[in-house]
């Protein structure tokens, strides 16, 4: 196996931070979050699952799509093209899996989402395997694993004295310049993939339960907040709005921004004129779960859930996606 010491890894990260936009897990007031870093100082190497996914760095919560200038009656529209390369370091495999889910819609369905493609192209994803599964994790139920290399460019696994490095893609290999690698005998031990296996019912089984009473039962507790969708590595709903940034005589500057949206929010389906075709909380959470396990796989291929468990641990009223999955599996069997 290829091996790197902790010290050599830090040297490499320090170098990367000079050359690219480097993002890594950090402790932010007691919360583990992926954050831009200027060096290896403050980068966490031992952590559980960052509370937010790394989605924000590929599909930002707020992204300027266009800069708009109006001079009199003349318009100029300029697209924002990020110049620098980006490295996401310390990704958990579920975060890369989440990116692959969004790829299936934003990149693999025509027309390609231009802003997302730019973010994706400039980014290299360096994973750090979870040594084991954490509270709420069920990645192994939905095609993932705590040490899965799929969808990453490089995967690091903690071993005695440092990390085993697995090169997954050419993009990953290209990043290795400056990383002092050694050859060592043996292979890194696999992670403890001992999480509960949650049954995943096929889309057709979900379809038979669209009118089931369980949506009422789970949905009634829902607060219509956006936590589950915002912490999710695979949720991709967005809104597009304009904001004026400056007004001078003869020159108005504005931006067209894309912001995260959430199908759980009250007015998600409110149309101009006030009609709301999904006015109830049970109807809205049903849509979220159906999107993940019925619509997304039917329309775009992959499941819309990577089993990271973030929505489970962060829901203030204990709406638990695995409880829903089990409920669907049980009911559709009967």
């Amino acid at each position: 196996m290829k091996f790197v010491t902790q010290d050599a890894l830090r040297v490499w990260l320090d170098q990367l931070a000079q050359e690219v936009d480097l993002v890594a897990p950090r402790d932010v007031e007691g919360h583990v979050l992926y954050r831009p870093v200027a060096s290896s100082a403050g980068v966490l190497f031992e952590y559980q699952r960052p509370e937010m996914s790394a989605k924000d760095y590929l599909f930002p919560a707020t992204e300027v799509l266009l800069q708009i200038e109006q001079r009199g009656k003349e318009m100029t529209l300029e697209e924002i093209v990020p110049e620098r390369k980006q490295v996401l370091f310390g990704l958990r495999p579920c975060d890369a899996h989440g990116a692959a889910v969004i790829d299936a819609l934003f990149l693999q369905q025509e027309p390609v989402d231009a802003a997302y493609r730019r973010q994706r192209e400039r980014t290299t994803m360096v994973g750090l395997a979870c040594p084991r599964m954490w509270e709420g994790c069920f990645c192994t139920s939905v095609g993932g694993a705590p040490d899965a290399a799929d969808h990453l460019d490089l995967l690091l696994r903690e071993v005695d004295g440092g990390y085993a490095v697995q090169v997954v893609t050419e993009k990953g290999a290209a990043l290795l310049a400056g990383l002092e690698l050694q050859e060592k005998k043996g292979e890194p031990p696999p992670s403890q993939a001992d999480g509960e296996i949650v049954p995943v019912a096929p889309p057709q089984a979900w379809r038979t339960l669209f009118e089931d009473e369980m949506w009422q039962r789970h949905g009634e507790r829902c607060l219509s907040c956006r936590i589950c969708t915002y912490v999710c590595p695979a949720c991709r709903c967005f809104d597009v709005v304009d904001r004026v940034t400056s007004v001078q005589p003869g020159l108005t500057c504005s931006e067209r921004i894309r912001v995260w949206d959430a199908c759980t929010s009250t007015n998600y389906r409110r149309a101009a004129g006030g009609h709301n075709s999904r006015p109830t909380k049970p109807g809205r959470i049903r849509n979220r779960f159906f999107c993940k396990f019925c619509y997304y796989p039917e329309d775009f291929g992959p499941l819309g859930c990577v089993g990271c468990g973030r929505c489970i641990v962060s829901c203030p009223v204990d709406i638990d996606i695995t409880e829903v999955m089990r409920g669907v599996a049980e009911r559709s069997d009967g």
Partner: peptide
């Protein structure tokens, strides 16, 4: 263009 998720009626 089928990305933003807003207008789905089921699938």
């Amino acid at each position: 263009i089928g990305k933003c998720g807003r207008c789905n009626m089921g699938e």
